[in-house]
Lab assay of single mutants.
Amino acid sequence: MQRVNMIMAESPGLITICLLGYLLSAECTVFLDHENANKILNRPKRYNSGKLEEFVQGNLERECMEEKCSFEEAREVFENTERTTEFWKQYVDGDQCESNPCLNGGSCKDDINSYECWCPFGFEGKNCELDVTCNIKNGRCEQFCKNSADNKVVCSCTEGYRLAENQKSCEPAVPFPCGRVSVSQTSKLTRAETVFPDVDYVNSTEAETILDNITQSTQSFNDFTRVVGGEDAKPGQFPWQVVLNGKVDAFCGGSIVNEKWIVTAAHCVETGVKITVVAGEHNIEETEHTEQKRNVIRIIPHHNYNAAINKYNHDIALLELDEPLVLNSYVTPICIADKEYTNIFLKFGSGYVSGWGRVFHKGRSALVLQYLRVPLVDRATCLRSTKFTIYNNMFCAGFHEGGRDSCQGDSGGPHVTEVEGTSFLTGIISWGEECAMKGKYGIYTKVSRYVNWIKEKTKLT
């Protein structure tokens, strides 16, 4: 034993070699072989497995989906700052455009905790909710729209109204504003409101030439003092309507412009014939205590009207009353817009006519005020429907199939267009061939041609 100890002390290297040989010859039971080890760690190889990531292109799944990435790591994937920024906006807080917040056709661009709407022409605001041009839906104005110097929408209202708090709607500024039905039992019968379409306001006024200088022999019209197929109006439903009495009662109609003036057809009036105007009328054979009678003290036909040349060209006249009318729910003026808007309103496509005229061709006159909704007829169809001249200051309205029309005794009465609950004068009943005849239409004086003249002559002093 002493000898062994001496050998170990003198030859430590020998001992180490012996131990190493023993270990190498022993069977290893701690580690699995290569094949079995792979069965336990069965993990798919990654895209760049075996390579240094710093030297390969980034992978979106590896960089940002398996674990949260930084902007720089995302930049490695896209290799483009702009594309990385677009991805980053949604990656950080989701897609803010998912709810489609942009209105009126706006395009949404996502941002971090926010979004941006790219608005089409005519709109602005956070969600493109603000109209900035009158060309689109009248700028959301209830009545009139004008573009300011910086191309912003400025709404306005006709006389007797003021802008509401929203700067879009119009509200009454006087007790009985024009064009409004205020009798409670008839307010439910107000005709369907007309909503502004998209309009090209630059070209809204037709490029028409008034044929002022045409000389033409007097034409022989049949029954051209021209509501057939209409309905009984309720008291106060058309408070701007008046009836004219002269040699015979209810020979023509008219509309209240203001307390002192009536507008009617020029062919209705004769110099030297006494005319009485009755406002607030409903049943011409009954006294309903809503009527107001006034005498006409002055007749002003349009300066281009000449019955000797043509009885229905420039067929418009103004009547001055001896005493002002007292405005109330049964006696209310009709609204008159400017030339541009009167023309736009007419193009809405349908209007209402009213009167006490004959209820059928050569038949009896109506006792109760009649009204009828009539569609506008395109000019080409209008011209083809008659052998008589249709001037540019006239328009056609009615039904091709016949059966409904204005008729004798309705002449001078109103053709009105309702705009968001307020009625505007767009025409004056003038003439036609018979009444409600198939293929024939009622012919009306186009008020847009005469609004400046009306307003100039009827100013209240």
Score class of each variant (00 low, 15 high):
residue 7 I to E: 12
residue 7 I to T: 09
residue 14 L to F: 11
residue 21 G to K: 02
residue 23 L to F: 15
residue 25 S to P: 06
residue 28 C to G: 07
residue 29 T to I: 10
residue 29 T to Q: 08
residue 30 V to M: 12
residue 31 F to S: 15
residue 34 H to Y: 09
residue 36 N to S: 09
residue 43 R to N: 12
residue 43 R to A: 13
residue 45 K to E: 13
residue 49 S to E: 15
residue 51 K to I: 04
residue 51 K to S: 11
residue 51 K to H: 11
residue 52 L to K: 09
residue 54 E to L: 04
residue 54 E to N: 04
residue 54 E to Q: 11
residue 55 F to M: 14
residue 55 F to E: 14
residue 56 V to F: 06
residue 73 E to Q: 06
residue 78 F to T: 02
residue 80 N to H: 06
residue 81 T to P: 13
residue 85 T to Q: 07
residue 88 W to T: 09
residue 89 K to D: 10
residue 89 K to M: 08
residue 90 Q to T: 07
residue 91 Y to A: 15
residue 93 D to S: 14
residue 93 D to Y: 12
residue 93 D to M: 13
residue 94 G to R: 14
residue 98 E to L: 13
residue 99 S to W: 13
residue 99 S to A: 12
residue 100 N to F: 08
residue 100 N to V: 10
residue 101 P to Q: 14
residue 102 C to V: 01
residue 103 L to M: 09
residue 103 L to W: 03
residue 105 G to M: 13
residue 113 N to E: 14
residue 118 W to R: 07
residue 119 C to F: 01
residue 119 C to E: 03
residue 120 P to M: 07
residue 123 F to T: 10
residue 125 G to H: 04
residue 131 D to S: 12
residue 133 T to P: 15
residue 141 C to T: 00
residue 142 E to A: 04
residue 147 N to E: 11
residue 148 S to K: 07
residue 150 D to E: 06
residue 151 N to L: 06
residue 152 K to G: 10
residue 153 V to I: 08
residue 157 C to V: 00
residue 158 T to Q: 11
residue 161 Y to T: 01
residue 165 E to M: 10
residue 170 C to H: 01
residue 173 A to T: 08
residue 175 P to I: 05
residue 177 P to M: 01
residue 181 V to Q: 12
residue 182 S to V: 10
residue 183 V to S: 11
residue 187 S to E: 09
residue 189 L to N: 12
residue 193 E to K: 06
residue 202 V to Y: 08
residue 202 V to K: 11
residue 204 S to T: 09
residue 210 I to G: 12
residue 211 L to W: 13
residue 213 N to H: 05
residue 214 I to C: 11
residue 215 T to M: 02
residue 221 F to Y: 06
residue 223 D to N: 06
residue 224 F to V: 07
residue 227 V to S: 07
residue 228 V to E: 08
residue 228 V to Q: 10
residue 233 A to K: 08
residue 233 A to G: 09
residue 245 N to R: 06
residue 246 G to I: 03
residue 247 K to R: 11
residue 249 D to R: 05
residue 251 F to Q: 07
residue 251 F to R: 10
residue 252 C to T: 01
residue 262 I to P: 01
residue 263 V to M: 02
residue 264 T to L: 02
residue 265 A to T: 03
residue 265 A to F: 02
residue 270 E to C: 05
residue 271 T to G: 09
residue 272 G to T: 09
residue 276 T to C: 04
residue 280 G to A: 03
residue 281 E to N: 04
residue 288 E to C: 06
residue 289 H to Q: 04
residue 293 K to T: 11
residue 294 R to P: 01
residue 296 V to A: 05
residue 296 V to L: 02
residue 302 H to S: 03
residue 304 N to F: 12
residue 307 A to Y: 07
residue 309 I to H: 08
residue 309 I to F: 08
residue 310 N to E: 13
residue 310 N to Y: 04
residue 311 K to G: 09
residue 315 D to A: 02
residue 316 I to R: 00
residue 318 L to P: 01
residue 322 D to A: 10
residue 322 D to T: 02
residue 324 P to D: 04
residue 328 N to C: 03
residue 332 T to E: 03
residue 332 T to K: 04
residue 336 I to A: 01
residue 338 D to Q: 05
residue 339 K to T: 13
residue 340 E to N: 15
residue 343 N to V: 03
residue 343 N to I: 03
residue 344 I to F: 15
residue 344 I to R: 14
residue 345 F to E: 02
residue 346 L to W: 14
residue 347 K to H: 07
residue 349 G to H: 14
residue 353 V to M: 08
residue 354 S to M: 15
residue 355 G to W: 14
residue 356 W to E: 03
residue 357 G to N: 03
residue 358 R to K: 15
residue 358 R to I: 06
residue 361 H to K: 14
residue 368 V to T: 15
residue 371 Y to Q: 11
residue 371 Y to A: 13
residue 374 V to H: 02
residue 375 P to I: 12
residue 376 L to F: 12
residue 380 A to P: 13
residue 381 T to R: 11
residue 382 C to N: 02
residue 396 C to D: 01
residue 396 C to H: 02
residue 399 F to H: 11
residue 399 F to V: 13
residue 401 E to L: 12
residue 404 R to H: 11
residue 404 R to E: 04
residue 407 C to N: 04
residue 407 C to D: 03
residue 409 G to M: 14
residue 409 G to L: 06
residue 410 D to M: 15
residue 415 H to M: 08
residue 415 H to T: 01
residue 415 H to P: 02
residue 417 T to E: 00
residue 417 T to K: 01
residue 418 E to C: 07
residue 419 V to L: 12
residue 424 F to V: 01
residue 424 F to L: 01
residue 427 G to P: 00
residue 427 G to A: 02
residue 429 I to K: 09
residue 430 S to M: 06
residue 431 W to M: 13
residue 436 A to T: 12
residue 437 M to W: 13
residue 440 K to L: 02
residue 441 Y to M: 11
residue 442 G to K: 06
residue 445 T to M: 05
residue 445 T to Q: 04
residue 445 T to N: 06
residue 451 V to C: 12
residue 451 V to W: 02
residue 453 W to T: 00
residue 453 W to C: 01
residue 458 T to M: 03
residue 459 K to G: 12
